[in-house]
């Protein structure tokens, strides 16, 4: 399922280099007393993108999102959101932001509708907003439950209500702090469908998550660990960065002997053999899979070897993430 979305991303991937940046973070550090929560973080978020901020619990994701929304002031460095430091946001600028906190922070004694209505009022939305509220509740599939008291609905519904409250005023820059935490995979997929839909409406989304495989849904991914930004790249770029290349699995009709192994590794674009999966099959690390695969086919033809299967191996993001974090730790 993740790969399907990756493919979609690749198809719709915009040219981020040409987009203007709605968020620019330069050498931002945040300390609480003697504790450093975020250290020397720099990145930018292009307009209209989904920016994923991935990392384990306590890695500084929420602190970063709070700096960007103006809840915290950075100890060092500078953050510009919509061209303004968050601490200097005026009301008009705040109205352009949507923020969904990590936990359910709405009123448990109000109904779904009343909570959404309250959120709409917070943003000064016109009183003739019934239609908008209805639409947004339909969007998150909560309209049928609008009369239920918030404390009595499920955790998943509460997350959807939070999302509806974040989107009710039609913000252009949306911060979502672990929106899919603690919810089942089906609902998680629905959430990402919503996010993609929002992106299609040219909104920018800044999303933190602990689910590493959700990186596949993003256009750009920042990987956080121990308060530091380990790396930032597109999902494919991250894989490439983790393994210093791409991976191809090659399966032949016969045993690939030592001589053949050596010759394959000498094909231009092949970096090295990573592992022998079976006597007939090997996994190779290559520079660019699409350009190397024809070279391998050519070599096989010349050698009279029949290649049964050749395909790019896409490692799961969990592995990519672990590799990146381990490398970072090894580098000290």
């Amino acid at each position: 399922m993740a790969f399907m979305y990756q493919a979609e991303n690749q198809r719709s991937k915009p040219e981020w280099g040409n987009s203007s940046h709605v968020i620019e973070v330069t050498n931002v550090t945040k300390r609480f007393g003697g504790e450093t929560a975020v250290e020397n973080v720099s990145f930018y978020v292009p307009e209209g993108s989904i920016f994923g901020f991935i990392g384990p619990s306590g890695s500084g994701k929420t602190t970063t999102i709070r700096i960007l929304t103006g809840v915290y002031r950075p100890t060092e460095g500078e953050a510009l959101v919509l061209g303004t430091p968050p601490s200097k946001f005026n009301q008009a600028k705040r109205a352009r932001l949507g923020y969904m906190p990590q936990l359910f922070v709405l009123y448990p004694n109000l109904t779904v509708w009343e909570n959404l209505n309250f959120a709409a009022s917070l943003y000064g939305m016109s009183l003739s907003r019934k239609k908008t509220l209805k639409e947004i509740l339909e969007f998150v599939e909560l309209y049928e439950h609008r009369g239920k008291i918030a404390r009595n609905i499920s955790g998943g519904m509460q997350r959807r209500l939070s999302l509806a409250s974040t989107l009710v005023h039609d913000p252009e820059l949306i911060f979502l702090d672990e929106p899919t935490a603690g919810i089942d995979p089906v609902l998680r997929k629905k959430f990402w469908d919503h996010f993609k839909e929002l992106q299609n409406q040219r909104r920018t989304l800044f999303i933190t998550t602990q689910y590493v495989n959700e990186a596949a849904y993003c256009d750009l991914v920042g990987v956080m660990g121990m308060g530091r930004l380990i790396t930032i790249d597109t999902p494919d770029g991250l894989r490439h960065r983790a393994y210093q290349g791409e991976m191809i699995d090659v399966t032949a009709d016969r045993r690939l002997d030592y001589q053949m192994e050596r010759e394959i590794q000498e094909i231009p674009g092949v970096i090295r053999m990573l592992e022998r999966k079976s006597p007939n099959s090997v996994r190779l690390l290559v520079d660019q899979a699409p350009s190397v695969m024809p070279e391998i086919m050519e070599w096989a033809q010349a050698k009279g070897v029949d290649i049964k299967e050749i395909e790019e191996f896409i490692p799961p993001f969990d592995d990519v993430f672990v590799k990146l974090v381990e490398d970072q730790e090894n580098r000290g």
Binding site: R66, T69, G70, V71, Q91, A92, R94, A95, L97, Y99, P101, L103, V105, L106, Y107, P108, A119, L122, Y123, G124, S165, F175
Partner: peptide, 14 residues
């Protein structure tokens, strides 16, 4: 305690 004030801070509410 609920954390609602975090929403207030981000919103245009004075």
């Amino acid at each position: 305690s609920l954390g609602t004030t975090e929403l207030f801070r981000v919103s245009p509410l004075s």
